[in-house]
Design a protein around this nucleic acid. Sequence first.
RNA 1: GCGGCAUUGGCGUAAUUGGUAGCCGCGCCAGACUUAGGAUCUGGUGACGCAAGUCGUGUAGGUUCGAGUCCUAUAUGCCGCACCA
Length: 949
Amino acid sequence: MEYNFKEIEQRWQQRWREQQLYKVSNNSDKPKYYVLDMFPYPSGAGLHVGHPLGYIASDIYSRYKRLCGYNVLHPMGFDAYGLPAEQYAIQTGQHPEITTEKNITRYKEQLSKIGFCYDWNREVRTCDPQYYKWTQWVFQKLFNSFYCRECNTACDISELVDWFKEHGTDKIGALGSEELHFTADEWNAMSEKEQQQVLMNYRLAYLADTKVNWCPALGTVLANDEVSEGLSVRGGHPVEQRVMRQWNLRVSAYAQRLLDGLDKIDWTDALKDTQRNWIGRSEGAEMQFRLAGTDDYFTIFTTRADTVFGVTFMVLAPESEYVQQVVTAEHRQEVDEYLNWVRHRTERERISDRKVTGVFTGSYAVNPLTEKNIPIYISDYVLSGYGTGAIMAVPAHDSRDYAFAKHFNLPIIPLIEGADVSEQSFDAKEGVMMNSGFLNGMQVKDAIAAMKRYIKEKGIGKVKVNYRLRDAIFSRQRYWGEPFPVYYKDGMPYMIPEQCLPLQLPEVSDFKPTQTGEPPLGNAAIWAWSEAEKKVVAKERIDNRTVFPLELCTMPGFAGSSAYYLRYMDPTNNEALVSKSANDYWKQVDLYLGGSEHATGHLIYSRFWNKFLFDIGVVCEDEPFKKLINQGMIQGRSNFVYRYIGEEATGNLYISYNLIENPEYKGKVQPIHVDVNIVKNDILDIQAFRSWMPEYKDAQFVYADGSTDVDNPYWGAATDKQYICGWAIEKMSKSMFNVVNPDDMVERYGADTLRLYEMFLGPLEMSKPWDTNGIDGVHRFLKKLWNQCENIVDEDPTAEELKSLHKLIKKVTWDIENFSFNTSIPAFMIAQNELSKCSKRAILEPFAVLLAPYAPHIAEEIYHRCGQTSSVCDAEWPKLNEAYLVESMQKYPVQFNGKVRFTIEVPKDTSKEEVERAVMQHEDTPRFLNGATPKKVIVVQGRIVNIVL
RNA sequence: GCGGCAUUGGCGUAAUUGGUAGCCGCGCCAGACUUAGGAUCUGGUGACGCAAGUCGUGUAGGUUCGAGUCCUAUAUGCCGCACCA
């Protein structure tokens, strides 16, 4: 009978739906296991064949865990807020809600065809008010919290208020943007607004004038991880720096905990390194330098305290607050010109053009150790956002300072013995100190420690740890996002009452930003907050006494994705983000699968968000994702034809790829992308090409063998000749005609084949190109298996058959537990081949269970042919019996992986002959050898390691 | 510049972790069945050699009885961070 995958797959998918087979309960005696995929953003283009890779892997693992007796949570949802939907709305006038809904429907349709075991009852969508209610709720909690350095946890802001009432800022443990100083009396005398301004300095979600990445093309600000090389990650538009009043999240407060937490979780080293890098902890010292001729000091940060004796000048960032204090009258004009020039440079210019620039301020600082006066410069190579925005320059041992010193002809004092600084600086932290007073003769490492002690004793500085991690900018000047549950009274933000959440996204007349430069929510007619009525009312009613303006920005994409894994635990709860009992049961995500592109975005924010929720007692685990695997990207594999563009070219002639280097064609061909769907194994389907696009209707070819149909009026007859296409690995994209759609694959080969083939392509974590050639191989395997299962009989299996089965059990179990899914498919093929004559129930039933995670539809079918009435999903994972392997080895010794390995002890210096004799006499030997003579015995100093038969 | 990962037949890859390198698949070659095949089945397929055999995991060294696997350099490619003091 033919393998009718379409019928089988549809029938089973329907039955799974009807029986709610994948519905998961929060009450179970079974141990829990939580497998999560990073939920997709439903774009208009639909899924391509690369998207399901991770989903298939997680589905295999989920199904395996279920077969092993776990209660497995494996949900799916949609990250539905975001820029593309809104930009589409601006272009077409369609409401993003409608397009998003349409895209989600399409995604679900595509996903369901592949046969995933999601519990769709738990689906979440970030744009659903019942979902974003809790995003807004967490935001309010962040607003009402501060970070306590002493207890290392987030605390309620009311505790801080109580402290201020009693003690002012004395012995304050709260972490703030700036260090403030006031007494209890001063606090109590402050107005409501003044107090609110002070508290803003400590809140975990706070409003501040921040230097932001402003993207004019997108009309919004972007977070650091959304910008790369001065361009927006989405769309690649230029980004400029601007100071704007924005919501921020005090992620930096959690820098150390985010770093420490990495040691407790099972992520790859690569990903942990990326996060460590992003957090960027560096230990150093803050030092005070006196401004010459005054009693004013300013503070710098350095990791090379040992090099103070080599400081020959100072540099301030252009934005540094010290600048105005330091610049002298005669240098003011020059400095202002420079500052102006710097301000008008875009981020991109600054990155691409790194020539040395700077200006002298006219002032001098005093080196605290040499007591010498050193000039103070301003230069944009010093960043205002890191450390204190001021540095001490050590040109001999820092390449940037070196370049600056050379340019301005400043002295360079080497501090390390043997370091040649005539051509370049010596940046390595190694060697013996010289020219450094009491540090002379010390190793660099010891010198750093000694200097830190020294500056602490002398009171000229202190040990300090700095982090590169900045606070996250949390405002977006866009429509399609979560509204802030915030209104403004007297210029200060206030939270709308918790019981009024969610604050629903209003209708607007236009999604574009308003002409006044306000975000699109400025177009909403009904967008004001009535304190008395506790509800949203018409904007025209704003009087700033009882009715107040609401916040016009929306939250960024990462807001909704930061806690979605918690919502799956308890998706319909209207009383809490997640109930205590649900959270206690599911705890944290055991296995998280997704792309590594989220390493410094979502995966940092989510950990921050979770740690905060842990601090305030909402969740019981400090880390959200116990184990994380990054699946590789699937790239496209494009095909090309080569149009002849030499003299006498008609623009109609295409040269076979193998000929394009020939002298007559070399340099005279132009590669043109051709649809990969009309190419097989790099051979072009001539007829399909001619009808692909009108311009190729009369295409003529020089074929692989050099023959041509240029002069052949009946070129249609030449289709038995081969035209070879070139190929390249590129991003999968419509414009390159290399997009392969999973629906097409399911249509042609079935979901089971697609699932197997995606795993077969290579290791999960590796990036690899999609190449449809080769899918036939795994499809053939399923067809053969299908035919083998036509008439299943109840006979006792032979030892050989049991051996094949148990070999497979061992292999597949090991593979899944080690996420080595690609190596299971060869094992299945070998086993099928070995068992091709076998149609016994006792073999095929466990075989079906082993196959079920990979190819669930055909596995169900085989399982039922074996007489089972329940789903294969509720079967038990086959038990491995090594005895079958050993027992069969006695009968078929040579067949056990072709290799037998065991160890026996023999005295040292035993000759090879004696060893061989010892092997033959060893009690284990007969079992393996069965009378045969070993072909080769490998002896290792007193031990036998290998016996080859 | 710093950090991470990779490099094995014509191609994707495997080698359970230091033990016969190349499993499985694609492609290719040969054969079978076909009126026919972009169908199916069987066999072969790292290189050199008629052969026995020799050589082979980017390159060069090292550790080891034994290295694709460990160490040290080096080259190439990919990824992340980057004027972070």
